[in-house]
Amino acid sequence: MLDKPFKTIEEQIELIKSRGLMIFDEERAKQILMDIPYYSLLNGYKDLFKHPIKKDLYNPSASFELFYYVYLIDLQFNSIVLKYILMIEKSLKAKVSYVVAKNIGASQIDYMDSRNYSNRNNKLRSTLSQLQEVINDCRSGTPTKYYKDNKNHIPPWILTNDIMFGLVQQWYSILPADSKIEVCNKFFSSKYESFDLQEKQQLLSNGLDLLRAFRNKAAHGGRTFNFKQSHKTINNTIYSFTSEKTIKLSEYRSTEIGKNDFFSILIIITLFLNEPISLQQWFDELNSIEHTINSQKIIDRQGYQVFNLPSNFIERLENLVV
């Protein structure tokens, strides 16, 4: 017998009701379940609506419609954050390709030569192999394919259009020390001059890893509110330049806020967005979503609490850019 046998939409509705969850409009609920799988909606957010005593039941104050409301807010928050992660990914590609072209060469004859790189992290061979694979297997309609067929070389700023976030990170990681420093410094404006080089490099490396982990989780249906990345963290020393107005050391130690959680993602985006118009748009959109998430209580919690954010999370972020 299957552990999870198929259930019709009608059977799913009955299962929901049997677990004590109110449904105010069953026909609408059926339509929602045709658009969003039961697992993604009910299992995905059940931790927010647990019964205080009975493990298999929902909180008596919860409803199917409240699940859907939280799902939509989460989706909206995800879409905002993902948009700016994409901007940072493009920024990384622009900076790496610029430095590679300037310091190593604009032709693949030069930038695919292993002698022009460092192998300190033992990723040299695999990184160049993956870059070569992108060149060899480029699909019709891509910039790389066009240059491969019509030009006498493929510049790095063309190749980066067709490589993934993780691969451009690896390309950055094998650059010679001077080129890595150059890329790193381009990510941090003069307002972060109090960061020493080692702090900048660690923040860039770990920050990019955290952004990529969040993007991958969100793209596969992961929830925003419970994001946690155990492998990479933001070092608390970077918060000293705001006199702990963004994160207090006591908070960092006791709750790990700003270490590797969802608020960390917002912090990294704020730090890595140096273009003024993009940065202002980021804050405008955060203000909009802050109004949305706090417009209705989720049972007994405000929206910012559901997303594990400080109540003044936007003000804290603004302290990073003043």
Rank of each mutant, 00 (worst) to 15 (best):
K4G: 07
K4D: 15
I23F: 05
M34W: 00
Y39M: 08
G44D: 08
D47R: 12
L48N: 11
K55N: 13
N59I: 08
E65S: 15
Y71I: 00
L75E: 11
K83F: 05
K90R: 14
S91P: 01
L92M: 11
K95T: 12
G105D: 10
A106N: 12
I109F: 04
S114I: 04
N116G: 13
Y117T: 03
S118N: 15
N119H: 12
S126H: 04
T127H: 05
L131C: 12
Q132C: 05
V134Q: 04
N136D: 15
D137R: 09
W157V: 04
L159E: 13
N161A: 08
G166T: 05
L167Y: 07
F187T: 06
S190N: 12
S194K: 02
D196H: 08
L197M: 15
E199A: 15
L204D: 13
S205A: 13
G207V: 01
L208A: 11
F214S: 04
A219Y: 03
G221D: 08
T224Y: 02
K228V: 06
Y239S: 12
S243D: 14
E251W: 04
S254H: 14
E256W: 00
F262W: 05
I267Y: 05
I268V: 09
L271M: 14
L273E: 10
N274V: 05
N274Q: 14
I277A: 15
S278C: 03
S288V: 07
E290A: 15
T292W: 05
R301G: 10
R301H: 09
Q302P: 04
S311M: 08
S311R: 12
V321D: 06
